[in-house]
Amino acid sequence: MSSTLLAPVLEREEYIEQAYFFRTLAERLREGVPAQMALLQIRDELLTTTRLPWAVEFLATELKHSGQLGSGMKRLIHYFTPFQAFVMTKAEEEGVRFSLDHALKVLEGEARYRSENPTPAGLFVYEFEVLARCQLGYQNGLDCMEQDSFFDEDWRQFIETVRRSMSEVEFADLIYLYSEQYIQDQQRAGREGPFPRPLFGLKEGRIAKASHGRDPLYLFAALQRQLGYPEVPRLRLPTEQRGVLQMLEHKVRELELRLRLLEGEVRGQVEVIQALGKPETAESSLEWLKRLDNEE
């Protein structure tokens, strides 16, 4: 492990406010509010009995000086976990296909899960799926996960085992080997211990055993469907952006129409165009152009 300093486990109300903070910050940024202003606005909205308003004010100051949020979260090791800072830092890296909006959704989901009835198994699988689905890098990501005091010593040793075994052992097999199902299977086969402390239950082990040789994303989905494990948010194209794309498509069609009109004038086809009539909307442009081609 790269550091002996472990991030503390916070009170439930802190995670509730964190989930609100990450969600609202994403919304304000999508609305075009400058990040500095959004942070100060949200700071005033947060519950003052928590430490988050102070942390957000620190992030606003850090953003003003460095232009980044991830560096500020790294410095607040006594409040934000190394994994939270890692996710934010990856979103701010150039050349990485992991947007800030997606990162905030991921952090909101993690904070919401921590505010409910989190288990080490559920949190571990959630964070590991973030690394896998968003392609953030296993080695550094697992190292950050290992520095969270929510995981006890056995869990930290397991995370270290996962980190060292990623290129050799399937993820599903690692879950199975540290499950009650594995111990039960070994005992049925007449083998005696000692066995490692089971970190996953019978059902998790059964699902992991059945997932051998398959894409790990199928394992995550099965755990979510069958056992209610937290789901990692996926970034979907917002409705507003889809509307913008449709508008651009209409503009392109209108430009195509105007080009055809110019071509028609050059070829002396103005009479044909007038006879056909001008299309009323951009949506009817393609049909109109087909009719023009038929007249030719």
Score class of each variant (00 low, 15 high):
Met1Gly: 07
Ser2Leu: 12
Leu6Glu: 05
Val9Leu: 05
Glu11Trp: 00
Glu17Gly: 09
Gln18Gly: 09
Tyr20Cys: 03
Tyr20Trp: 06
Ala26Asp: 13
Ala26Thr: 08
Glu27Leu: 14
Glu31Arg: 13
Gly32Glu: 01
Pro34Gly: 01
Pro34Val: 06
Ala35Tyr: 03
Gln36Arg: 09
Leu39Val: 10
Ile42His: 01
Arg43Met: 08
Asp44Thr: 12
Thr48Trp: 07
Thr50His: 06
Leu52Asn: 03
Pro53Phe: 00
Glu62Met: 15
Glu62Leu: 09
Leu63Cys: 11
His65Lys: 03
Gln68Leu: 15
Leu69Ser: 08
Ile77Asp: 00
Tyr79Ala: 02
Ala85Pro: 07
Met88Arg: 00
Thr89Ser: 04
Thr89Tyr: 01
Glu92Ala: 00
Gly95Trp: 07
Asp101Ile: 10
Ala103Trp: 05
Ala103Arg: 01
Lys105Pro: 08
Leu107Pro: 04
Glu108Leu: 00
Ala111Glu: 00
Arg112Ala: 14
Tyr113Val: 08
Glu116Tyr: 12
Pro120Ala: 07
Leu123His: 12
Phe124Cys: 05
Tyr126Asn: 00
Glu127Gln: 15
Glu129His: 14
Ala132Pro: 00
Arg133Phe: 11
Cys134Leu: 09
Gly137Ile: 01
Tyr138Met: 11
Gln139Leu: 13
Asn140Thr: 12
Gly141Arg: 05
Asp143His: 11
Asp143Cys: 11
Asp148Met: 08
Phe151Asn: 12
Phe151Asp: 07
Phe151Val: 14
Asp152Met: 05
Trp155Arg: 07
Trp155Asp: 06
Gln157Pro: 11
Phe158Cys: 04
Phe158Lys: 02
Glu160Ala: 14
Thr161Pro: 12
Arg163Phe: 10
Arg163Trp: 10
Arg163Pro: 07
Ser165Glu: 15
Ser165Met: 15
Ser167Lys: 14
Ser167Arg: 15
Ser167Val: 13
Val169Cys: 04
Val169His: 06
Asp173Leu: 08
Leu174Ala: 09
Tyr178Thr: 10
Ser179Phe: 11
Tyr182Trp: 11
Tyr182Gln: 10
Ile183Gly: 04
Asp185Ser: 02
Gln186Ile: 07
Gln187Gly: 04
Ala189Lys: 03
Gly190Lys: 02
Gly190His: 01
Glu192Thr: 13
Glu192Ala: 11
Glu192Trp: 05
Pro194His: 05
Pro194Thr: 13
Phe195His: 00
Leu199His: 14
Leu199Val: 15
Lys203Thr: 12
Gly205His: 02
Lys209Trp: 11
Ser211Pro: 06
Gly213Val: 00
Asp215Lys: 06
Pro216Phe: 04
Tyr218Cys: 03
Phe220Thr: 13
Leu223Arg: 09
Tyr229Trp: 01
Pro230Arg: 07
Leu235Trp: 08
Leu235Asn: 08
Arg236His: 13
Leu237Phe: 06
Leu237Gly: 03
Pro238His: 06
Arg242Phe: 10
Arg242Asn: 10
Gly243Ile: 09
Val244Lys: 12
Leu245Gln: 09
Met247Lys: 05
Leu257Pro: 03
Leu257Phe: 06
Arg258Phe: 04
Arg260Cys: 05
Leu261Pro: 04
Gly268Val: 07
Gly268Phe: 04
Val270Ala: 10
Ala275Ser: 11
Ala275His: 12
Leu276Thr: 11
Glu280Asn: 12
Leu286Asp: 15
Glu287His: 02
Trp288His: 04
Lys290Ala: 15
Leu292Ser: 02
Leu292Thr: 05
Glu296Asp: 14
Glu296Leu: 15
